[in-house]
Design a binder for these strands. Sequence first.
DNA 1: TTAGTCATGTAAATCGTTACATGATTGG
DNA 2: CCAATCATGTAACGATTTACATGACTAA
Lengths: 186, 186
Amino acid sequence: MATDRAKTRYVVLGLLCAGPGTGYTLKAAIERAIGHFWRESYGQLYPTLNQLADEGLAEKVSKPSGGRPRYEYSITDAGREALAAWLLEPPSEVPVRDELMLKVFFGRYGALPTLREHLQASLRRFEATAQQLSMAQAWLRKEQADAPDLPFWLLSADRGARVAEARAQWARHAIEVIENLEAQSP
Amino acid sequence: MATDRAKTRYVVLGLLCAGPGTGYTLKAAIERAIGHFWRESYGQLYPTLNQLADEGLAEKVSKPSGGRPRYEYSITDAGREALAAWLLEPPSEVPVRDELMLKVFFGRYGALPTLREHLQASLRRFEATAQQLSMAQAWLRKEQADAPDLPFWLLSADRGARVAEARAQWARHAIEVIENLEAQSP
DNA sequence: TTAGTCATGTAAATCGTTACATGATTGG
DNA sequence: CCAATCATGTAACGATTTACATGACTAA
């Protein structure tokens, strides 16, 4: 019974709107398209797919490729309705849990050089994300120019890029602050 | 056995470094000080406190106030060591799961006015957070001017303010985009 | 007197990751 | 032939939330 805290269902239904797919291809699609704000594991994905099929929100069709078992899922009308209903509900707040920030906040009880290294590693990741999402936007504008989903896809990439850029700027500032602290104390 | 994916332990240990507290006051401190990047429930907090006491990382002392039971916890040397050891480890990546973004990404399958309302509600929250954290920084500089933790506290508030500001700017842009789409289609 | 705050916990349910288990196909 | 990729799943464990249960103190 659709516990409804489980959002995996809607991720799957949303992606199936763009066309049928297997557990494997959906996993790849999640990483590629929404990986900057959502992730799923196979352990979550495969049971959810079977559950959606049981509930009639998706249709499961065996499409073996070679000797390999393969199940393709497509969305049903009931599935589209379930997705639309969920889209109407106000989104729940982000459950924020950022371990880097914890280590910054409690920074005084650790070693400054280590903290700086954590920050530098994070900065590299933030920069990579920001750049990757900027490129994604350019690619979308060029290659998906007439997809009806385009504005929504652009918006999500844009949000990712902006947040990553803000995080990167903050990290640069933080590294400076820590370096100053390092210089002041032996 | 310190499963070590459980970060609640370190949140508690870190806060106890600033002085002893009860489960209730720690919950309040988490919300006030690190609520913009971390949250805990009582269901997590109280068992963790007892566990830390069992392991000798915190000391539990009964301090009833009136007829009311009350347990004050303080950090031990072993607790400080455990915190310091954890601070050395590289932070794990943020497990990102942002429901608003999911609703934006799948926006085409829902109603535009509803999406706009979700965005407007989120914008208000982002603006509130940004403003609140800016004020927190000013307050910290004034009232905690000589706390040795000051730079670390400022850094975390700064990160929250920057990210919230970036999100707010994005939300304003997103609302515009959705309004344009609404104007274009009946 | 009543609402709000202070205060501590447990139990059930669920959510989610990680590790395990297996094996075919494809490109170099 | 070997590594990477395609492909599906389960089991165990652990993390986390939510609801429940209880009750004293305090200020308006």
